[in-house]
Design a protein around this nucleic acid. Structure first.
Lengths: 190, 190
DNA sequence: TAAGTCATGTAAAAAGTTACATGATTCT
DNA sequence: AGAATCATGTAACTTTTTACATGACTTA
């Protein structure tokens, strides 16, 4: 089983969903730290069902296409629980931007600054979104968000990691932009 | 072309290397933020060569198998330079650990603490390695590491991001462990 | 003598992306 | 009338991982 399977199981363990619902939860930044397309989600749901970890019921709707609503089985919850508890090795991280930065010495300071500043702006924007969601959680979810056995606590914890990650990225971009400015002749940068 | 192609180009633009050399540079954490196996590297080198971005010469060695030493062509440097300068969209991040954390409410506080603490320890260990490399760079590379047009500056910048990333992860693990302790009855945690 | 390093590759399978394919309803 | 949302899937392709395959030399 892949992380995707466990991600879907983790969403279904909270709320029964259709494939389409899962898709929406995973396609935008709400699915912090995992993401998938429908071409992965639909087959993965079929696989989970074949393995007895989820089951579905068809819900007929008058005004819309009917949908398959999936929910976890006992075996599904057990499989998820077991997987969650097992420590994992550190993965190799991949960051395409760092591949660019590694060869930054090949471009002009102007180009480098443009690259770094535009990436910084994108991270700052995502950070603002996460912070907004964080404020909503803190407002609406207390005290459940502090209770370890609540899914809300788990959601809040992943969001916090997202916020920290984006803040860290933004700070690093600022450091890098300053370092570029400091090392290049000022007229050529401004 | 994939990030892997540009990563290899970026390494070869600094120093000509054999496939085996590239492999070693990318397989352990020294290749911060990108990683590949030989089953990807050898075919990718062939593809880069077919595209005219690298070329190789066979170096015969008496005591060891001979090797193919690759170097970038003018076209290879140009392609890399162009790619580096173009801003990129924010990617969707993937973090398997966050998939676990999202379902952390399903396990016991003891299991959760064990999971978080062991992951924290691994990140702290990687952080220590990065910091050690950073000290070496700061000692041996000044002032080249401050000059924007030096590859050493670029290496130092990626390492700094690695250090920040690991520090952030460690801090977040600490926050999470404390939050778990704070929400669970103390006898059940100790 | 067993394990490790140097050296190059291929094969098969899994995971992920992009594009194809359909169709009703609702909002602008 | 056109775009967006709801709804489910498949096909083709690319990328990545894991395992297979070979062989000489060096160190413990």
């Amino acid at each position: 089983m892949t992380p995707l399977g466990y991600a879907l199981l983790g969403l279904l363990a909270r709320t029964p969903c259709s494939g389409y619902d899962l898709l929406r939860k995973m396609e935008d930044p709400v699915g912090y730290f995992w993401h998938a397309q429908r071409s992965q989600i639909y087959p993965e749901l079929a696989r989970l069902e074949a393995a007895g970890l989820v089951r579905h019921t068809v819900v007929e709707q008058t005004d819309r296409p009917h949908k398959k609503v999936y929910e976890t089985t006992e075996a599904g919850i057990a499989a998820l629980r077991n997987w969650v508890a097992v420590p994992m090795k550190l993965p190799f991280d991949r960051d395409t931007f760092m591949v660019k930065v590694f060869s930054l010495w090949l471009v002009s300071p102007q180009q480098a600054l443009h690259l770094v500043r535009s990436y910084r702006a994108d991270h700052a924007e995502r950070l603002a979104q996460y912070e907004e969601i964080g404020r909503t959680m803190e407002r609406d979810w207390e005290p459940a968000a502090r209770r370890f056995d609540s899914p809300k606590f788990a959601s809040y914890a992943t969001l916090r990691r997202g916020i920290d990650y984006e803040q860290g990225y933004v700070s690093w971009c600022d450091w890098l932009a300053e370092a570029i400015e400091a090392s290049a002749p000022s007229e050529s940068v401004e």
